[in-house]
């Protein structure tokens, strides 16, 4: 069994491979859905992820013209989310170029494969800056160095440089114009920024191409030797790697639930029930 020909790589799938090749195989090649708990405190974990998803949705609604006040009124029962919203309103959009596109997906190709990135927000000024904004709702702000090496930082900047021309007056965006901002709305809107360069892009391209080629050529996907990486993996019972981890040890911002194509609830499925 191998990866399907039309598989699209994302920062999430590459991150999984970097963490544990076996996890990548189970999730993306064997497509095994495994409902084991990621963390012991399942409900609390769920509350946090739903708050994060709601925050992202609110930003999108705001950028599409829903008044911020109307959105704020809906937060009467959630102090934490209201605090995030206040931080977003105070600092989230500061110093960003005027053309703003939320929840946009771009794709390029590398090593014969599609590479896809789904952005929370792109703020662009054709001929000027091209800023990637990623909202983070986790309580912890990681170090600059760990974020720099995160697959998301590598993939997002690279894909924008390769595939953003149509958003930038039909010119390929010079890497030096690209910046990626992580905005930690739970930490007073603290912003960690990462510039880009042609040299960095070449380095990233080599790394990504190497990973993709390695996956394509692999006939065995080894289980990671680092047991700490199994703590929050839903396949750990399959691999006999212990129980669920604790929520306080978990970096909620690393929990990505990406879908290449979303189709939400499809009520047209009513059709099939009739027959």
């Amino acid at each position: 069994m191998s990866l399907s020909d039309d598989f699209a790589f994302t920062q999430g799938s590459l991150g999984d491979y970097a963490d544990c090749a076996r996890r990548f195989e189970l999730r993306f090649i064997k497509r095994l859905r495994y409902p084991a708990l990621e963390v012991q405190d399942a409900l609390q974990f769920e509350t946090r992820t739903r708050q994060g998803a709601r925050f992202h949705k609110m930003v999108q609604q705001h950028l599409l013209g829903v008044p911020a006040e109307a959105l704020a009124e809906s937060l009467a029962d959630d102090e934490e989310l209201a605090r995030w919203w206040a931080n977003y309103r105070a600092r989230g959009l500061t110093d960003l170029p005027a053309q703003r596109l939320s929840e946009i997906t771009l794709q390029t190709h590398l090593a014969g494969r599609r590479l896809v990135a789904k952005y929370d927000l792109l703020a662009l000024a054709p001929g000027g800056a091209a800023v990637i904004v990623d909202w983070k709702t986790g309580a912890r702000v990681p170090s600059q160095s760990s974020l720099r090496g995160r697959m998301q930082t590598i993939v997002y900047r690279y894909v924008l440089a390769q595939a953003g021309a149509h958003l930038y007056a039909d010119e390929r965006i010079p890497p030096e114009r690209i910046r990626m901002d992580y905005v930690y709305v739970a930490s007073d809107g603290e912003r960690l920024s990462f510039a880009y360069s042609a040299a960095q892009m070449r380095q990233d391209e080599a790394l990504l191409a190497e990973m993709i080629a390695a996956i394509d050529q692999a006939d065995q996907f080894a289980l990671t030797n680092e047991l700490r990486r199994c703590r929050f993996c839903s396949y750990r019972s399959l691999c006999d790697r212990g129980g669920a981890g604790r929520l306080e040890d978990f970096d909620i911002d690393e929990y990505e639930d990406e879908e290449e194509e979303t189709f939400a609830l499809d009520f047209d499925q009513i059709a099939e029930i009739e027959f």
Binding site: L106, A163, A165, L167
Partner: peptide, 9 residues
């Protein structure tokens, strides 16, 4: 199947 497309979706 479009492995040559660069852009949006």
């Amino acid at each position: 199947g479009l492995t040559s497309h660069r852009g949006g979706q």
